[in-house]
Design a protein around this nucleic acid. Structure first.
Length: 500
RNA sequence: GGCCCAUUCGUCUAUUGGUUAGGACGUCAGGUUUUCAUCCUGGAAAGAGGGGUUCGAUUCCCCUAUGGGCUACCA
């Protein structure tokens, strides 16, 4: 296994935006490929015309790019096994299905979807489950029950048919999964799955089996929802006389509220899209738009169902590649915790001060604020641990550059009720402030220490309110020293005018 | 219903026969911060249940329960 060139594929269908689970599947494929110096391939499984959603493909491409898990080969990247859209490979599937037909592994079936729907209902009413399988196929309208001539005639009149895979009972299949070990399934339980739909397009089972073989995929890493189809896929490989690839079925990401796996259809109480998705008039923001860093997002995703064994949790993509292994993937489904991503983002944020700096620079330019680099750096160091996202930095640091344009209404009302006394205090304080020379942290601190305990706290509260607009923020003496005497007095005046 | 897969603190997880069952997020309490946040310290918090196997089971086996997947001319 270690000798061969590893080739893995991420094969989403363009039925909408990729969600968390899809991105994680792509990530694990990417990690596994990179770890072994292999090739990561993107194949688009667009065999379902009905569910096709425009823009999904570009969304998938953009998302992988944003996450820095770009394919080496496939849709958007080219490669020796093109085309990588299944819709463009229909003739290939037809060629191979003929092989199956000729060898007796597949047969024509003429029931329509509606016919079968009725049949299922009938069975259900009797307390049974209808299955198109070895028990029933002899009673149904298919080529198994016809002579060659009859079939020919039927095909001449009836243009609508499907091709089913003939599964023989009585065999116990033992299949290996890298994550789960050996899995046993009896062929009696399988039904004759449709391989070619009446619109002439192959189903997932056929298309992916053929493509995985033709594209020389060595490891199929996909969600656990495929585990039940594993036997079918094994049988398909065997019918073609091909060696199956290795399989690894990933645990599903489960919904926290309600039941089931996460899906595009049922929105969660946390964002499930990596990037924004525009659906008509509604825009659903993704992690990117919400301010999450791709590396924090990817780091969190990697640890959802897998971990390298130690106590460390922060890993760069390169470190993930280095430590990744399929054998350490968990078997059980996982619940997603938005608070943990929030924490991850903060961890990444404090290591991205340069990005915060350039964000602030742009903000300043936009607001026509002049600043000095050193001053800005100091502000960032003072405020960065108060935020989780870059875009939050301004609301926590504006007062170092510009007076508050808004005062906390609750406290404002409180001091307005007592404004004469407050104004008196502020005016007195202003006079004292003039005399502080130089206007340094230490001297400002000394000034406040002249007040008695109770008074001092109230005074500091007032000052903070005048400077910041509310009762939260960086150490008061630091703010005073940084914005300087003139600006400080100006802001006291502002407040006095406000409450007059 | 049938089949398949799973089951360690609320959540993500470590521990692959012998541990006071460890960490992280969250949570609670205390401390630092003359505010808030950060930070520091500490606490509460888990092997689904029942049988085996074994000197000894979270770890191996069986049953039950629970959760999940599949059961489409969807992937």
């Amino acid at each position: 296994m270690s000798q061969q060139h590893i080739r893995v594929r991420f094969a989403p269908s363009p039925t909408g935006p990729l969600h968390l689970g899809g991105v994680r599947t792509a990530l694990y494929n990417y990690l596994f490929a990179k770890k072994h110096g292999g090739t990561f391939i993107l194949r688009i499984e667009d065999t379902d015309k009905k569910r096709f959603v425009p823009n999904s493909e570009s969304y998938i491409l953009k998302t992988l790019k944003w996450c820095h898990i770009e394919p080496d080969e496939g849709v958007g990247y080219g490669g020796p096994y093109s085309p990588y859209h299944q819709s463009k490979r229909i003739n290939i599937y037809r060629y191979y299905i003929n092989q199956l037909l000729n060898n007796g592994y597949a047969y024509y079936a003429f029931e329509t979807d509606d016919d079968l729907g009725i049949k299922r209902k009938e069975y259900k009413n009797m307390g049974l489950t209808f299955s198109y399988n070895y028990e029933n196929r002899n009673k149904l309208d298919n080529s198994l029950n016809m002579t060659k001539e009859q079939l020919k005639k039927k095909l001449d009149i009836c243009s609508s048919y499907v091709i089913r895979f003939k599964i023989n009972p009585g065999e116990k299949l033992k299949m290996h999964d890298i994550i789960r070990g050996w899995i046993t399934i009896h062929t009696d339980q399988l039904d004759d799955k449709i391989l070619l739909k009446s619109d002439g397009v192959a189903t997932y089972h056929l298309a992916s089996t053929i493509d995985d073989h033709l594209m020389k995929i060595t490891h199929v890493i996909r969600g656990e929802e495929w585990l039940s189809s594993l036997a079918l896929h094994f049988l398909l490989y065997r019918s073609f006389g091909w060696d199956p690839p290795n399989f690894a079925h990933l645990p599903l990401i489960l919904k926290k509220d309600g039941k089931g796996k996460i899906s595009k259809r049922n929105p969660e109480n946390f964002p499930i899209y990596p990037m924004q998705w525009i659906n008509g008039d509604t825009i659903i923001p993704g992690y990117k738009e919400l301010g999450y860093f791709p590396d924090a997002f990817v780091n969190m995703l990697a640890l959802l169902g897998w971990n390298p064994g130690g106590k460390r949790e922060i890993f760069s993509l390169q470190e993930l590649v280095k430590t990744f292994s399929l054998s350490r993937i968990k078997k059980s489904g996982v619940f997603f915790d938005i608070k943990k991503v929030y924490w991850f983002n903060k961890k990444y944020l404090i290591s991205k001060k340069e990005e915060v700096f350039s964000f602030m620079c742009k903000k300043m330019q936009k607001n026509f604020i002049l600043y000095e680099k050193d001053y800005l750096w100091k502000v960032i160091h003072l405020t960065i641990n108060r935020i989780h996202f870059i875009h939050e930095i301004w609301e926590h640091s504006f007062y170092f550059f510009t007076p508050p344009s808004y005062y906390d209404t609750y406290f404002l009302r409180k001091i307005k009720n007592n404004h004469e006394q407050i104004i008196f205090k502020l005016k007195n304080a202003k006079l004292s402030l003039y005399k502080i020379n130089p206007f340094t942290y230490v001297n400002v601190k000394l000034f406040f220490q002249k007040y008695e305990n109770k008074c001092r706290i109230k005074m500091m509260q007032l000052f903070r309110f005048a400077l910041v607009g509310n009762l939260k923020g960086v150490d008061l003496f630091t703010i005073l020293e940084m914005i300087g005497k003139k600006e400080s007095i100006q802001r006291l005046d502002n407040l006095i005018n406000k409450i007059k």
